[in-house]
Design a binder for these strands. Structure first.
Length: 487
RNA sequence: CGGAGCGUGGCGUAGUCCGGUAGCGCACUGCAAUGGGGUUGCAGGGGUCGCAGGUUCAAAUCCUGUCGCUCCGACCA
């Protein structure tokens, strides 16, 4: 397989597919729209998962698991919810196959009386269970999360960014009061922001979705929105205040302290393997991936360099304690003894986005140093053997910060406040985020979308609509919003 | 579902117009040298050309059908 990547500047779409497959993150599955997450890609996901799993456990949530299969009738209980998901549900109609004339066919005698769907999300099963579990205010809150796969039969798919089946976490909480549910929704959004910015090194805008863009079945959807290298927006996480919609649909009431009956207040929130796509498209460059150190499966790759057996032995004696030392200090380290040439290895590990590389050859053994090469900016420096661990830690921190700062500068430089629709269209055409006034009408939002393909990514928390007029209608603005073309 | 394109060793492709029994690059195996930015040389192994029919002495190539995938749109995390 050729390791040459498509040009990131001319054809980022081809570059993306090349990187994902050639760096060994994922491969296409046999069924359209499915993907195999390969070990290197899965380690990346695992690291993201571990970070977030700890965050939610630290805030009182626990994991559980609900079934993949859901009665078809459940989906229909919440009107908006069914509208939102009906078009993309995989439906199980039969329970067995049989052979007939050397062919495997669906056994027509095995038709299910009540068809089941494969979860596109789990609100319905979960609320059917919460009905059984909640009677009193003493049963609240329930703070459950599950790590699971879901299936949404999408028209167009792309590895990680939109696949028919994907992995995610979905939190589902139940509360006594509206205020408590709202707080939960916002608290989780903060965790998402922290995860994106501090770990994935991706700056995000936080805000509220418009009615047109919110989750089907939610009262309010909050989101984190990131900018990719092609200046398009990617929704990287969502947190929903579901109000009492699902409680009403599934008749989940609780007895209050003063002995009244009230519907339970709900939230749900999710991040998915799409985040891997976000990391790729936020940090990549012409040589491949650049993975932030905090989530990198391999943080340091060691490349031994030698000519003959004698040199190999010398290098080995020098490098082994170094590897051991780094590992003992919990730096994820890999030493590449494969017999490709050093140059080949440099390119290979750069493609895979390993944050830093240590080159060790006879010259370094001689001078009691090592060469450290950074993936983020290509710098190479010679570092003394003693306090190597500290140098490595410092460099990894610098890389983490640098990736974040680069991404933030890029986003800030491509986010513009505008006052005229002409400017608006120019920016959308050339790529970028636009901050501007909006009159709050869905009709306006829709017209702009038809005209420019841009959608309102969010109403940012730090909006200031006071002196603004709507970019499209010229009426007084109800909100300041961020428009962009999105994935 | 509309538009476009593609199915030929593991991957990427040439050959298809004009039928004559499959070629190249990468990867793979072995040996030797090489090794601080994709290293050479030599020697090897692997494909009945998506599938099913048809035309023909002869089909990767022509005809009919069929399946699948990718890209672009409408839908979406």
């Amino acid at each position: 397989m050729s390791k040459k990547l498509s040009n990131i500047d001319n054809d980022i779409s081809a570059w993306y597919t090349d990187v994902v497959t050639k760096a060994g993150l994922a491969d296409y599955g046999p069924v359209k729209g499915t993907m195999v997450i390969k070990p290197y890609g899965f380690q990346l996901w695992d690291n993201v998962k571990d970070v977030f799993d700890k965050m939610i456990k630290d805030t009182g949530h626990t994991n559980a698991y609900f079934p993949l299969l859901i009665p078809k009738s459940f989906l229909a209980k919440e009107a908006e919810h069914v509208d939102g998901f009906a078009k993309e549900c995989a439906v199980v109609t039969h329970t067995r196959l049989k052979s007939e004339n050397d062919e495997i066919i669906v056994d027509p005698d095995s038709r299910l009386e009540e068809e089941v769907i494969i979860r596109p999300t789990s609100e319905t099963v979960i609320w059917s269970m919460y009905k059984k579990w909640i009677q009193s205010h003493r049963d609240l809150p329930i703070l459950i999360n599950q790590w699971a796969n879901v299936v949404r039969w999408e028209m167009r798919t792309r590895l990680f960014l939109r696949t028919t089946e994907f992995l995610w976490q979905e939190g589902h909480t139940a509360h006594k009061t509206k205020e408590e549910a709202e707080k939960e929704t916002l608290d989780i959004l903060e965790l998402y922001k922290k995860l994106a910015e501090e770990y994935l090194a991706i700056p995000v805008y936080t805000g509220l979705k418009t009615d047109a863009e919110k989750f089907a079945g939610a009262d309010k959807t909050y989101c984190i929105e990131a900018m990719m290298l092609d200046k398009k927006a990617l929704q990287a996480g969502t947190s929903h205040n579901l109000g009492q919609n699902f409680a009403k649909a599934f008749d989940v009431k609780f007895q209050t302290e003063d002995n009244n009956e009230e519907y339970v207040w709900a939230t749900s929130w999710g991040i998915s393997t799409r985040l891997i796509g976000a990391v790729i498209l936020a940090h990549g460059d012409k040589n491949g991936l650049r993975i932030p150190p905090k989530i990198a499966p391999i943080q340091i790759v060691l490349i031994p360099i030698f000519r003959d057996e004698k040199q190999r032995k010398i290098v080995e004696d020098y490098i082994d304690p170094i590897t051991k030392e780094l590992k003992q200090n919990e730096i994820r380290t890999f030493i590449d003894w494969s017999d490709s040439s050093p140059g080949y290895k440099f390119n290979e590990w750069e493609l895979k986005g390993v944050p830093a590389r240590i080159e060790i050859g006879p010259r370094d053994v001689e001078s009691n140093t090592v060469i450290i090469a950074r993936r983020d900016n290509g710098e190479k420096l010679s570092s003394p053997r003693h306090d190597l661990t500290q140098s490595v830690k410092d460099i990894l921190d610098q890389i983490q910060n640098n990736l974040y700062n680069e991404a933030k500068d890029f986003r800030d430089n491509n986010t513009h406040s505008v006052n005229t629709y002409g400017e608006f269209k120019d920016i959308i055409k050339n790529g970028g985020f636009v901050r501007c006034g909006w009159d709050g009408k869905q009709e306006t939002e829709l017209k702009i979308k038809e005209d420019t393909k841009a959608t309102i990514r969010c109403i940012p928390f730090n909006e200031n609509p006071n002196n603004l007029t709507c970019i499209f209608s010229g009426n007084k603005a109800m909100h300041e919003v961020i428009f962009a073309k999105s994935y």
